[in-house]
Amino acid sequence: MDHLQLAAHTFSSRLILGTGKFSSAALMLEAVKASGAQLVTVALRRFNREQLEDDLFGPLSEMPGITLMPNTSGASTAAEAIKAAHISRELSGSPFIKVEIHPNPQHLMPDPIETMEAARVLASEGFLVMPYISPDPVLAKRLEDVGCASVMPLGSAIGSGQGLASAAMLSIIIRESSIPVIVDAGLRAPSEAARAMEMGCSAVLVNSAIAASDNPAEMAAAFRDATDAGRRAFKAGLMRESSEAVATSPLTSFLGEQS
């Protein structure tokens, strides 16, 4: 079977779902179900007694086959991310941590230096580190060297819906990487998830495109199918591109042709 392998963990789904920005917890849970996702991200936040429905741990942990991947969003330094990771592991029991360190709320670009430091420490502590990074092939390789379980380069800025603006860089990362490459952030349409998978990504992480849809569950199902289609196409092998037309029908022996 063709499974996503993250360290010793095996997943049949290659679509990872983010749980932010849904208009209700019920819609989010429906989308998780429809997506077939087995890994879902959550964020650590202060308890708010006026917003008890914010607490997603209960409902998500009751869903069969779901593994939580807490993120460190809100952290702007390695030290903050490490602290968030420790608390998250305490609460979730999950070894997965999405290291996400973005100091600037305007562009939300990940800080490579702090990310590298947090990843190094957390990997040495036994976390399965999934770092959210800019599409930098050198950084990706350095993160692999310190024991990350995957690298998660962005397709484009978080929540921007600009798709695979980083495609050329992603291709290099995919070619060079010995660990799974997961496109995280920026996807808008299922066709972009399919393209990422056709390029050889191991999985895609999608949130805004599904949460901001008029029908999140339906969009989640569309992303599920597109991710599967892209993966199958990659495994089957795409035909070589040619700068010239190559006929599919015989061009000789046509009606009335003089022999």
């Binding site: 983010g18 749980t19 932010g20 920005k21 849904f22 917890a25 989010m28 991200t41 959550v42 964020a43 650590l44 936040r45 202060r46 308890f47 914010d54 607490d55 997603l56 741990f57 998500l60 939580l68 807490p70 993120n71 969003s73 608390i87 998250s88 609460l91 979730s92 978080i158 929540g159 952030a185 992480l205 949130n207 805004s208």
Partner: peptide, 10 residues
Amino acid sequence: VEILVFAGGG
């Protein structure tokens, strides 16, 4: 005292 929960996040 800090009390923390898992909320929605990507």
